[in-house]
Design a protein around this nucleic acid. Structure first.
Lengths: 347, 347
DNA sequence: GAATCAATCCAAAGCGCTTTGGCTACCACG
DNA sequence: CGTGGTAGCCAAAGCGCTTTGGATTGATTC
């Protein structure tokens, strides 16, 4: 069923039918109703390609998903982020188009989106400080929202971010308050903006307590299970093992727990851990009582917010950049306890 | 840069330029080269909407991602499947368009893809026995490939599946060979086709060894971490606890391991476990030596195969359905050992 | 030398929609 | 009665591409 057929079957022109369907005012209410009823009855859907050609809009949003060429890892938070964003798109009549490319081709993927004009806007994932994609997207004039920030100078583009610095500062303080002095930071790859901010929060809390950070306690890598396992093992066999871990992701924390278990230690007893929990739907932090004490922020919700913001920007171009800083909340779970060897009376 | 501009700048007609770019024969080699060079130099990309309108093809593949309304869970294997499929699409000049919808709207999402003709084909995820989507897609004549199978009668549509029955039969036999007699099956939701086949494999192996299956040892649910934890706890506190677990996913197995650890038991010693490992990139089963003994089959690879198959079907319509049954391989890791109380000499 | 043919190219139609620029009634107003 | 305005509709142009149906040329064949 094409617009032409629908118009013919109603004895109307294409113009009128199109206007009726798109709620233009220059059509009588009775005609509009007649048209919409007929459209519903015949299950008519306008061809998005034709619509796009005529209007210039595509009613779709692009996401570039890089696959790291070395490890072939796809970021586990994508699934949930995309669930949140995708649902928002669907609700607003937008499609989501994904471009999965080797990370070395990532910029080209954005450039393609721009030059083909196949999407109305894009979301930028996993920004690094001074991320070149931001200049690129500004240059080609494609609306975008960044999930995260790209270093300082974040005023002139729109972003949605978690207050990573504050979250890790608070998490560190929680451990300090429990008497821990040797706190290991098992961070994500610090080439990523978010990981840098987390480190800053950790360092700032330590220094505020007069503790000199020990580089041996700090690590930074892609957040896999094995990374957590390996680093925790190494630290636990070291001369001065930490009494607590601050871990950047649930998955890495699972590796840490595995190592801790192999040493016959128990989380929350001999050794403590605080994690950052992205609230991934398939990896919940326990049911009622949290497995891990955690700073929490839903990545799914972040997806929704990014999507809404982007649609907003597309609908009303030319407005100043929008920023949204989400605060993570800190919940106490079963993985934290007072530092061992700490006389409770002394606390 | 539009086709018209490119043609004008070369002093050629649009026809010739279009044909040169699309490798039609009625264009001289020198002209073709001239055109392609100019296209590269000006970074010209044809507008996919216009192309689609003119050709009827869209050069994009649709995936419908349902969000379960109750648990709001997005299937964790999606990320890796989509990585595999998406990369294949990119390599072949196809886009991937995702439709994220509440699971109750799933059929409508496929119907929309069909009536708007916004994709050239779709992949069907997570089929249940007698899945209605298959009849639907046949009816609207949209090319598709099923990842998995939908019960019996799988001859008249194309699919890519893992031999789940055989995999779980072998895994069960491995445990039986180690002397285990009480083997718990912690299965996925058996409304799903794959989970039914896994149960069949488990039951078949038990019966072949003359063991009567104990319903108390069998569970079936969405494969979360907490599900594994809860079921394992219950089983371990029961009157006749199992000595081994057969677990449908890595994530669920992590929950089982957590429970096992809380009982002061060690996997591979007092209690054994075999899992099915989808080789998710962000949850590898150990680095060199596998954490869990496992039947393994890469879901990412499955994504690639599905994508290639679908593109094949789109390129050459009318060919008979294609089927691909992948065999999982069985690797021994650190989570299996002889049944406790078993005299090694008696083995 | 005329006819045939292959090799190259082009003008224009068409894909399904939106939107511009009318056109026709009809009514109100002075 | 003439003017102006408005409500409601339509024909046709145009979005950027592909493809049909020639046109033109130079070489080949009889």
């Amino acid at each position: 069923m094409r617009l032409k057929d629908l118009a013919a079957s109603l004895g109307l022109s294409q113009t009128t039918v199109s206007r009726a369907l798109n709620d233009y005012p220059e059509v009588s209410d009775t005609t509009r109703r007649r048209v919409k009823d007929a459209a519903r009855k015949t299950n008519y859907r306008p061809d998005p390609r034709a619509m796009g050609l005529a209007t210039g809009r595509t009613l779709s949003i692009g996401h570039v998903i890089p696959i790291s060429t070395r490890h072939e890892i796809v970021n586990p938070i994508f699934a949930d982020f995309i669930a949140g964003a995708g649902e928002t798109y669907s609700r607003n009549g937008y499609d989501m188009v994904l471009s999965v490319v080797a990370d070395v081709d990532e910029e080209q993927a954005y450039r393609d989106f721009a030059s083909r004009r196949s999407v109305d806007g894009v979301i930028v994932h996993g920004p690094r400080p001074d991320d070149p994609r931001i200049a690129l997207l500004k240059e080609v004039d494609l609306p975008f929202v960044v999930h995260g920030r790209a270093g300082s100078g974040d005023a002139d583009y729109s972003w949605v971010d978690v207050n990573n610095r504050r979250a890790f500062e608070r998490a560190t303080n929680l451990l300090l308050d429990l008497g821990h002095r040797r706190i290991a930071l098992i961070n994500g790859n610090e080439k990523m903006d978010f990981a840098g901010r987390r480190r800053d929060g950790y360092l700032s809390a330590l220094r505020a307590s007069g503790i000199t950070p020990d580089p041996a306690l700090m690590s930074s890598e892609e957040m896999t299970e094995f990374y957590g396992y390996r680093v925790a093992r190494n630290l636990l066999t070291s001369a001065e093992p930490p009494t607590a871990f601050l871990i950047s992701s649930m998955i890495t924390a699972i590796g840490v727990r595995r190592a801790v278990g192999e040493f016959g230690l128990r989380l929350g007893c001999e050794v403590s851990a605080v994690i950052h929990d992205d609230e991934l739907s398939y990896l919940r932090n326990g049911e009622d009582v949290p497995i891990f004490s955690a700073t929490r922020s839903s990545v799914r919700r972040a997806g929704e917010i990014c999507a809404e913001m982007l649609l907003d920007i597309i609908r009303e171009p030319g407005q100043p950049p929008i920023h949204k800083l989400l605060e993570a909340d800190l919940t106490i779970g079963m993985s934290t306890g007072p530092a061992p060897g700490l006389d409770l009376a002394r606390r």
